[in-house]
Design a protein around this nucleic acid. Structure first.
Lengths: 191, 191
DNA sequence: GCTAGAAGAATGAACGTTCATTCCGCATAA
DNA sequence: TTATGCGGAATGAACGTTCATTCTTCTAGC
Protein backbone atom coordinates (compact mmCIF):
# COMPACT_ATOMS: atom_id res chain seq x y z
CA UNK A 1 0.00 0.00 0.00
CA UNK A 2 1.41 3.40 -0.94
CA UNK A 3 1.70 6.26 1.47
CA UNK A 4 -1.35 8.28 0.41
CA UNK A 5 -3.37 5.08 0.20
CA UNK A 6 -2.61 4.37 3.83
CA UNK A 7 -3.74 7.76 4.96
CA UNK A 8 -6.90 7.47 2.91
CA UNK A 9 -7.61 4.02 4.27
CA UNK A 10 -7.24 5.24 7.86
CA UNK A 11 -9.67 8.06 7.14
CA UNK A 12 -12.13 5.72 5.46
CA UNK A 13 -12.10 3.22 8.31
CA UNK A 14 -12.35 5.98 10.90
CA UNK A 15 -15.44 7.36 9.16
CA UNK A 16 -17.01 3.91 9.06
CA UNK A 17 -16.28 2.95 12.65
CA UNK A 18 -17.08 6.29 14.23
CA UNK A 19 -20.29 6.63 12.24
CA UNK A 20 -21.42 3.18 13.36
CA UNK A 21 -20.22 3.11 16.95
CA UNK A 22 -19.37 6.65 17.99
CA UNK A 23 -16.06 8.17 19.00
CA UNK A 24 -15.75 5.92 22.02
CA UNK A 25 -16.62 2.81 20.08
CA UNK A 26 -13.77 3.38 17.67
CA UNK A 27 -10.46 2.93 19.46
CA UNK A 28 -7.33 3.82 17.56
CA UNK A 29 -6.17 0.21 17.78
CA UNK A 30 -9.32 -0.95 16.00
CA UNK A 31 -9.05 1.71 13.32
CA UNK A 32 -5.46 0.65 12.74
CA UNK A 33 -6.33 -3.02 12.54
CA UNK A 34 -9.16 -2.60 10.05
CA UNK A 35 -7.12 -0.19 7.96
CA UNK A 36 -4.37 -2.79 7.80
CA UNK A 37 -1.70 -0.59 9.38
CA UNK A 38 0.11 -0.57 12.68
CA UNK A 39 -1.30 1.36 15.59
CA UNK A 40 1.63 3.73 15.59
CA UNK A 41 1.37 4.41 11.88
CA UNK A 42 -1.73 6.52 12.32
CA UNK A 43 0.35 8.95 14.34
CA UNK A 44 2.60 9.55 11.38
CA UNK A 45 -0.36 11.10 9.58
CA UNK A 46 -2.36 12.60 12.45
CA UNK A 47 -0.93 14.14 15.55
CA UNK A 48 -3.59 12.52 17.73
CA UNK A 49 -7.15 11.25 17.65
CA UNK A 50 -8.68 14.69 17.89
CA UNK A 51 -6.79 15.87 14.82
CA UNK A 52 -7.93 12.81 12.90
CA UNK A 53 -11.52 13.52 13.89
CA UNK A 54 -11.53 17.18 12.95
CA UNK A 55 -9.60 16.58 9.75
CA UNK A 56 -12.16 13.98 8.68
CA UNK A 57 -14.89 16.46 9.48
CA UNK A 58 -13.30 19.09 7.28
CA UNK A 59 -13.09 16.68 4.37
CA UNK A 60 -16.76 15.79 4.71
CA UNK A 61 -17.75 19.42 4.89
CA UNK A 62 -15.92 20.07 1.68
CA UNK A 63 -17.64 17.20 -0.15
CA UNK A 64 -21.05 18.45 0.92
CA UNK A 65 -20.19 21.96 -0.15
CA UNK A 66 -19.27 20.67 -3.61
CA UNK A 67 -22.47 18.64 -3.84
CA UNK A 68 -24.55 21.70 -2.98
CA UNK A 69 -22.76 23.86 -5.48
CA UNK A 70 -23.42 21.50 -8.38
CA UNK A 71 -26.45 22.75 -10.25
CA UNK A 72 -27.00 25.74 -7.99
CA UNK A 73 -28.04 28.81 -9.92
CA UNK A 74 -27.92 32.07 -7.92
CA UNK A 75 -30.15 33.75 -10.48
CA UNK A 76 -33.16 31.54 -9.91
CA UNK A 77 -36.06 32.64 -7.71
CA UNK A 78 -35.64 32.19 -3.98
CA UNK A 79 -38.11 29.38 -3.66
CA UNK A 80 -36.42 27.34 -6.39
CA UNK A 81 -33.01 27.91 -4.90
CA UNK A 82 -34.30 26.79 -1.51
CA UNK A 83 -35.85 23.66 -2.95
CA UNK A 84 -32.67 22.84 -4.83
CA UNK A 85 -30.44 23.18 -1.78
CA UNK A 86 -32.88 21.30 0.44
CA UNK A 87 -33.37 18.33 -1.86
CA UNK A 88 -29.68 18.13 -2.69
CA UNK A 89 -28.79 18.12 0.98
CA UNK A 90 -31.44 15.60 1.97
CA UNK A 91 -30.55 13.33 -0.91
CA UNK A 92 -26.88 13.55 -0.04
CA UNK A 93 -27.61 12.46 3.51
CA UNK A 94 -29.89 9.62 2.50
CA UNK A 95 -27.35 8.42 -0.05
CA UNK A 96 -24.43 8.76 2.37
CA UNK A 97 -25.59 7.36 5.68
CA UNK A 98 -22.10 6.92 7.11
CA UNK A 99 -21.22 10.50 6.37
CA UNK A 100 -24.45 11.71 7.93
CA UNK A 101 -24.00 9.67 11.07
CA UNK A 102 -20.47 10.96 11.38
CA UNK A 103 -21.61 14.55 11.14
CA UNK A 104 -24.17 13.91 13.84
CA UNK A 105 -21.57 12.37 16.13
CA UNK A 106 -19.35 15.35 15.53
CA UNK A 107 -22.05 17.89 16.17
CA UNK A 108 -22.95 16.26 19.46
CA UNK A 109 -19.38 16.36 20.68
CA UNK A 110 -17.51 19.24 22.28
CA UNK A 111 -15.63 19.82 19.02
CA UNK A 112 -18.90 20.22 17.18
CA UNK A 113 -20.39 22.77 19.52
CA UNK A 114 -17.22 24.85 19.40
CA UNK A 115 -17.23 24.64 15.62
CA UNK A 116 -20.87 25.60 15.43
CA UNK A 117 -20.34 28.58 17.67
CA UNK A 118 -17.63 29.88 15.35
CA UNK A 119 -19.88 29.44 12.34
CA UNK A 120 -22.93 31.17 13.71
CA UNK A 121 -20.99 34.10 15.03
CA UNK A 122 -18.47 34.49 12.24
CA UNK A 123 -17.43 33.79 8.73
CA UNK A 124 -19.20 30.80 7.26
CA UNK A 125 -17.95 28.74 4.35
CA UNK A 126 -20.63 26.63 2.76
CA UNK A 127 -22.86 28.58 5.07
CA UNK A 128 -22.31 31.46 2.76
CA UNK A 129 -24.44 29.77 0.15
CA UNK A 130 -27.24 29.39 2.69
CA UNK A 131 -26.63 32.69 4.38
CA UNK A 132 -26.70 34.50 1.07
CA UNK A 133 -29.97 32.92 0.09
CA UNK A 134 -31.63 33.53 3.44
CA UNK A 135 -30.53 37.13 3.77
CA UNK A 136 -31.75 37.73 0.25
CA UNK A 137 -35.08 36.12 1.12
CA UNK A 138 -35.59 38.21 4.22
CA UNK A 139 -34.79 41.44 2.44
CA UNK A 140 -37.30 40.62 -0.27
CA UNK A 141 -39.81 39.65 2.42
CA UNK A 142 -40.22 36.14 1.06
CA UNK A 143 -39.24 34.49 4.33
CA UNK A 144 -40.55 35.04 7.83
CA UNK A 145 -38.76 37.68 9.81
CA UNK A 146 -36.72 35.68 12.30
CA UNK A 147 -33.06 36.02 13.22
CA UNK A 148 -30.98 34.05 10.75
CA UNK A 149 -30.01 31.16 13.05
CA UNK A 150 -33.62 30.60 14.02
CA UNK A 151 -34.59 30.53 10.38
CA UNK A 152 -31.91 27.91 9.81
CA UNK A 153 -33.43 25.75 12.52
CA UNK A 154 -36.83 26.15 11.00
CA UNK A 155 -35.62 25.15 7.56
CA UNK A 156 -33.10 22.43 8.33
CA UNK A 157 -34.32 21.05 11.63
CA UNK A 158 -36.92 18.88 9.88
CA UNK A 159 -34.44 17.89 7.25
CA UNK A 160 -31.87 16.56 9.69
CA UNK A 161 -34.56 14.88 11.74
CA UNK A 162 -36.04 13.05 8.79
CA UNK A 163 -32.62 12.09 7.43
CA UNK A 164 -31.68 10.63 10.81
CA UNK A 165 -34.80 8.50 11.02
CA UNK A 166 -34.53 7.31 7.43
CA UNK A 167 -30.91 6.31 7.98
CA UNK A 168 -31.74 4.51 11.21
CA UNK A 169 -34.13 2.48 9.10
CA UNK A 170 -37.37 3.73 10.60
CA UNK A 171 -38.68 4.26 7.09
CA UNK A 172 -37.47 4.89 3.55
CA UNK A 173 -37.78 8.06 1.51
CA UNK A 174 -38.43 7.87 -2.19
CA UNK A 175 -37.66 10.75 -4.56
CA UNK A 176 -41.22 12.00 -4.51
CA UNK A 177 -41.37 12.11 -0.75
CA UNK A 178 -38.06 13.95 -0.60
CA UNK A 179 -39.42 16.61 -2.95
CA UNK A 180 -42.69 16.96 -1.07
CA UNK A 181 -40.88 17.07 2.25
CA UNK A 182 -38.58 19.90 1.20
CA UNK A 183 -41.61 21.80 -0.05
CA UNK A 184 -43.14 21.38 3.38
CA UNK A 185 -39.96 22.85 4.88
CA UNK A 186 -40.41 25.78 2.56
CA UNK A 187 -43.96 26.23 3.85
CA UNK A 188 -42.43 26.58 7.29
CA UNK A 189 -40.02 29.39 6.45
CA UNK A 190 -41.87 31.26 3.74
CA UNK A 191 -43.99 34.25 4.47
CA UNK B 1 -28.81 12.14 54.65
CA UNK B 2 -31.71 9.69 54.54
CA UNK B 3 -31.89 6.80 52.15
CA UNK B 4 -34.28 8.27 49.58
CA UNK B 5 -32.45 11.58 49.76
CA UNK B 6 -29.25 9.84 48.74
CA UNK B 7 -30.84 8.23 45.75
CA UNK B 8 -32.39 11.51 44.67
CA UNK B 9 -29.11 13.33 45.08
CA UNK B 10 -27.30 10.78 42.93
CA UNK B 11 -29.92 11.19 40.23
CA UNK B 12 -29.75 14.97 40.42
CA UNK B 13 -25.98 15.08 40.14
CA UNK B 14 -25.98 12.51 37.33
CA UNK B 15 -28.41 14.66 35.36
CA UNK B 16 -26.26 17.72 35.90
CA UNK B 17 -22.93 16.12 35.03
CA UNK B 18 -24.12 14.09 32.08
CA UNK B 19 -26.04 17.02 30.63
CA UNK B 20 -22.97 19.23 30.85
CA UNK B 21 -20.21 16.81 29.91
CA UNK B 22 -21.80 13.76 28.33
CA UNK B 23 -21.85 10.16 29.48
CA UNK B 24 -18.10 9.84 29.21
CA UNK B 25 -17.45 13.07 31.04
CA UNK B 26 -19.40 11.88 34.05
CA UNK B 27 -17.51 9.04 35.75
CA UNK B 28 -19.26 7.23 38.55
CA UNK B 29 -16.58 8.38 40.99
CA UNK B 30 -17.31 12.01 40.17
CA UNK B 31 -21.04 11.54 40.49
CA UNK B 32 -20.46 9.93 43.87
CA UNK B 33 -18.20 12.70 45.09
CA UNK B 34 -20.52 15.54 44.12
CA UNK B 35 -23.51 13.70 45.52
CA UNK B 36 -21.65 13.33 48.79
CA UNK B 37 -21.76 9.53 48.84
CA UNK B 38 -19.21 6.80 48.40
CA UNK B 39 -18.54 5.37 44.98
CA UNK B 40 -19.84 1.98 46.04
CA UNK B 41 -23.03 3.42 47.47
CA UNK B 42 -24.42 4.23 44.03
CA UNK B 43 -24.45 0.52 43.34
CA UNK B 44 -26.82 -0.02 46.22
CA UNK B 45 -29.43 1.97 44.32
CA UNK B 46 -28.57 1.20 40.69
CA UNK B 47 -27.27 -2.08 39.40
CA UNK B 48 -24.81 -0.33 37.08
CA UNK B 49 -24.29 2.88 35.16
CA UNK B 50 -26.59 1.89 32.33
CA UNK B 51 -29.47 1.32 34.72
CA UNK B 52 -28.86 4.72 36.32
CA UNK B 53 -28.90 6.34 32.87
CA UNK B 54 -32.09 4.72 31.64
CA UNK B 55 -33.86 5.18 34.96
CA UNK B 56 -33.04 8.89 34.88
CA UNK B 57 -34.36 9.03 31.34
CA UNK B 58 -37.64 7.47 32.38
CA UNK B 59 -38.09 10.00 35.15
CA UNK B 60 -37.50 12.89 32.75
CA UNK B 61 -39.93 11.47 30.24
CA UNK B 62 -42.57 11.32 32.91
CA UNK B 63 -42.04 14.94 33.94
CA UNK B 64 -42.39 16.11 30.36
CA UNK B 65 -45.50 14.08 29.90
CA UNK B 66 -47.04 15.74 32.94
CA UNK B 67 -46.06 19.19 31.69
CA UNK B 68 -47.69 18.52 28.33
CA UNK B 69 -50.85 17.24 29.89
CA UNK B 70 -51.37 20.35 32.00
CA UNK B 71 -53.81 22.62 30.21
CA UNK B 72 -54.26 20.29 27.24
CA UNK B 73 -57.84 20.18 26.04
CA UNK B 74 -58.63 17.36 23.58
CA UNK B 75 -61.78 19.16 22.50
CA UNK B 76 -60.07 22.19 21.06
CA UNK B 77 -59.45 22.56 17.34
CA UNK B 78 -56.42 20.80 15.94
CA UNK B 79 -54.42 23.94 15.30
CA UNK B 80 -54.88 25.16 18.86
CA UNK B 81 -53.95 21.80 20.30
CA UNK B 82 -50.83 21.74 18.15
CA UNK B 83 -49.81 25.21 19.22
CA UNK B 84 -50.38 24.36 22.86
CA UNK B 85 -48.26 21.21 22.75
CA UNK B 86 -45.54 22.91 20.73
CA UNK B 87 -45.19 25.97 22.93
CA UNK B 88 -45.41 23.92 26.13
CA UNK B 89 -42.67 21.62 24.89
CA UNK B 90 -40.41 24.39 23.65
CA UNK B 91 -40.88 26.37 26.82
CA UNK B 92 -40.14 23.32 28.92
CA UNK B 93 -36.88 22.79 27.09
CA UNK B 94 -35.82 26.41 27.28
CA UNK B 95 -36.67 26.51 30.98
CA UNK B 96 -34.94 23.19 31.70
CA UNK B 97 -31.67 23.24 29.81
CA UNK B 98 -30.08 20.44 31.82
CA UNK B 99 -33.01 18.17 31.16
CA UNK B 100 -32.94 18.99 27.47
CA UNK B 101 -29.22 18.40 27.13
CA UNK B 102 -29.62 15.09 28.92
CA UNK B 103 -32.34 13.97 26.54
CA UNK B 104 -30.13 14.85 23.60
CA UNK B 105 -27.23 12.89 25.02
CA UNK B 106 -29.52 9.95 25.54
CA UNK B 107 -31.00 10.10 22.08
CA UNK B 108 -27.57 10.12 20.50
CA UNK B 109 -26.47 7.05 22.38
CA UNK B 110 -27.16 3.40 21.57
CA UNK B 111 -29.79 3.28 24.33
CA UNK B 112 -31.66 6.14 22.72
CA UNK B 113 -31.82 4.64 19.28
CA UNK B 114 -33.10 1.36 20.67
CA UNK B 115 -35.70 3.22 22.69
CA UNK B 116 -36.79 5.27 19.73
CA UNK B 117 -37.18 2.19 17.57
CA UNK B 118 -39.56 0.68 20.12
CA UNK B 119 -41.59 3.87 20.24
CA UNK B 120 -42.04 4.36 16.54
CA UNK B 121 -42.95 0.76 15.93
CA UNK B 122 -45.04 0.15 19.00
CA UNK B 123 -46.98 1.44 21.92
CA UNK B 124 -46.20 5.05 22.72
CA UNK B 125 -46.76 6.70 26.07
CA UNK B 126 -46.64 10.45 25.92
CA UNK B 127 -46.52 9.83 22.22
CA UNK B 128 -50.13 8.90 22.47
CA UNK B 129 -51.00 12.52 23.04
CA UNK B 130 -49.11 13.48 19.89
CA UNK B 131 -50.10 10.44 17.92
CA UNK B 132 -53.74 10.99 18.73
CA UNK B 133 -53.59 14.60 17.60
CA UNK B 134 -51.72 13.84 14.40
CA UNK B 135 -53.88 10.93 13.33
CA UNK B 136 -56.92 13.07 13.99
CA UNK B 137 -55.42 15.86 11.90
CA UNK B 138 -54.63 13.61 8.95
CA UNK B 139 -58.10 12.08 8.94
CA UNK B 140 -59.67 15.53 8.91
CA UNK B 141 -57.23 16.55 6.17
CA UNK B 142 -55.82 19.40 8.21
CA UNK B 143 -52.28 18.13 8.02
CA UNK B 144 -50.20 17.11 5.02
CA UNK B 145 -50.48 13.49 4.05
CA UNK B 146 -47.14 12.04 5.18
CA UNK B 147 -46.46 8.91 7.20
CA UNK B 148 -46.74 9.71 10.89
CA UNK B 149 -43.02 9.60 11.76
CA UNK B 150 -42.19 11.95 8.91
CA UNK B 151 -44.85 14.33 10.11
CA UNK B 152 -43.27 14.22 13.56
CA UNK B 153 -39.94 15.20 12.07
CA UNK B 154 -41.55 18.04 10.21
CA UNK B 155 -43.25 19.34 13.31
CA UNK B 156 -40.64 18.77 16.02
CA UNK B 157 -37.40 18.84 14.08
CA UNK B 158 -37.32 22.65 14.10
CA UNK B 159 -38.38 22.73 17.71
CA UNK B 160 -35.53 20.57 18.93
CA UNK B 161 -33.09 22.39 16.72
CA UNK B 162 -34.05 25.80 18.01
CA UNK B 163 -34.13 24.62 21.62
CA UNK B 164 -30.62 23.22 21.25
CA UNK B 165 -29.23 26.46 19.88
CA UNK B 166 -30.97 28.59 22.45
CA UNK B 167 -29.64 26.42 25.26
CA UNK B 168 -26.14 26.49 23.84
CA UNK B 169 -26.42 30.24 24.13
CA UNK B 170 -26.41 31.07 20.44
CA UNK B 171 -29.41 33.30 21.04
CA UNK B 172 -32.31 33.75 23.45
CA UNK B 173 -35.99 33.16 22.80
CA UNK B 174 -38.58 35.44 24.30
CA UNK B 175 -42.21 34.42 24.75
CA UNK B 176 -43.29 36.14 21.56
CA UNK B 177 -40.65 34.43 19.48
CA UNK B 178 -41.59 31.04 20.93
CA UNK B 179 -45.20 31.60 19.92
CA UNK B 180 -44.32 32.77 16.43
CA UNK B 181 -41.88 29.93 15.99
CA UNK B 182 -44.41 27.25 16.88
CA UNK B 183 -46.84 28.87 14.44
CA UNK B 184 -44.17 28.56 11.78
CA UNK B 185 -43.90 24.86 12.62
CA UNK B 186 -47.62 24.61 12.13
CA UNK B 187 -47.24 26.20 8.69
CA UNK B 188 -44.90 23.35 7.87
CA UNK B 189 -47.28 20.53 8.73
CA UNK B 190 -50.64 22.03 7.93
CA UNK B 191 -52.34 21.47 4.63
C1' DG C 1 23.97 -2.36 -13.36
C1' DC C 2 24.90 -3.55 -8.92
C1' DT C 3 25.48 -3.14 -4.13
C1' DA C 4 26.28 -0.89 0.49
C1' DG C 5 24.60 2.09 3.33
C1' DA C 6 21.72 5.86 4.87
C1' DA C 7 17.16 7.76 5.68
C1' DG C 8 12.60 7.44 6.28
C1' DA C 9 8.41 4.82 7.30
C1' DA C 10 6.03 1.35 9.75
C1' DT C 11 5.35 -1.57 13.55
C1' DG C 12 3.24 -3.33 17.86
C1' DA C 13 4.50 -4.23 22.59
C1' DA C 14 4.61 -1.49 26.55
C1' DC C 15 3.25 2.46 29.43
C1' DG C 16 0.53 5.42 32.14
C1' DT C 17 -4.01 6.80 32.84
C1' DT C 18 -8.89 6.42 33.44
C1' DC C 19 -12.93 4.13 34.24
C1' DA C 20 -16.78 0.94 36.06
C1' DT C 21 -17.23 -2.19 39.37
C1' DT C 22 -16.10 -5.01 43.54
C1' DC C 23 -15.02 -5.91 48.16
C1' DC C 24 -13.93 -5.57 52.81
C1' DG C 25 -13.46 -3.08 57.09
C1' DC C 26 -16.02 0.29 59.70
C1' DA C 27 -19.76 2.82 61.74
C1' DT C 28 -24.36 3.14 63.23
C1' DA C 29 -28.62 1.54 65.05
C1' DA C 30 -31.16 -2.21 67.20
C1' DT D 1 -23.51 -7.96 70.31
C1' DT D 2 -25.19 -8.36 66.01
C1' DA D 3 -26.75 -6.87 61.63
C1' DT D 4 -27.08 -3.49 57.99
C1' DG D 5 -25.67 0.01 55.13
C1' DC D 6 -21.85 2.71 53.73
C1' DG D 7 -17.28 4.36 52.05
C1' DG D 8 -13.42 4.44 49.37
C1' DA D 9 -9.24 1.78 48.34
C1' DA D 10 -8.37 -1.99 45.31
C1' DT D 11 -9.04 -4.30 40.88
C1' DG D 12 -8.77 -5.31 36.19
C1' DA D 13 -10.09 -4.03 31.66
C1' DA D 14 -9.64 -0.66 28.04
C1' DC D 15 -7.85 3.28 26.13
C1' DG D 16 -4.59 6.79 23.66
C1' DT D 17 -0.06 7.40 22.92
C1' DT D 18 5.04 6.44 22.73
C1' DC D 19 9.28 4.51 21.22
C1' DA D 20 12.87 1.04 20.37
C1' DT D 21 13.16 -1.81 16.69
C1' DT D 22 12.49 -3.66 11.99
C1' DC D 23 11.54 -3.13 7.29
C1' DT D 24 11.52 -0.57 2.85
C1' DT D 25 13.02 2.67 -0.32
C1' DC D 26 16.23 5.52 -2.24
C1' DT D 27 21.01 7.18 -3.21
C1' DA D 28 25.84 7.07 -4.38
C1' DG D 29 29.93 5.03 -5.64
C1' DC D 30 32.01 1.90 -8.44
Amino acid sequence: MTKPEKRAEVVRVALELIAEKGFHGAPMAMIAERAGVGAGTIYRYFENKEVLITELYRELEERIFQALLAGYDPDQPIRERFLHLGTTLLRFFVDHPLEFRYLEQFHNSPYGVEHRRDKLLGKGREDDIFRGLFVDAIVRREMKDFPLPILFSLAFGPLLSVARDAILGFYTLDADQVARFVEACWDGVRR
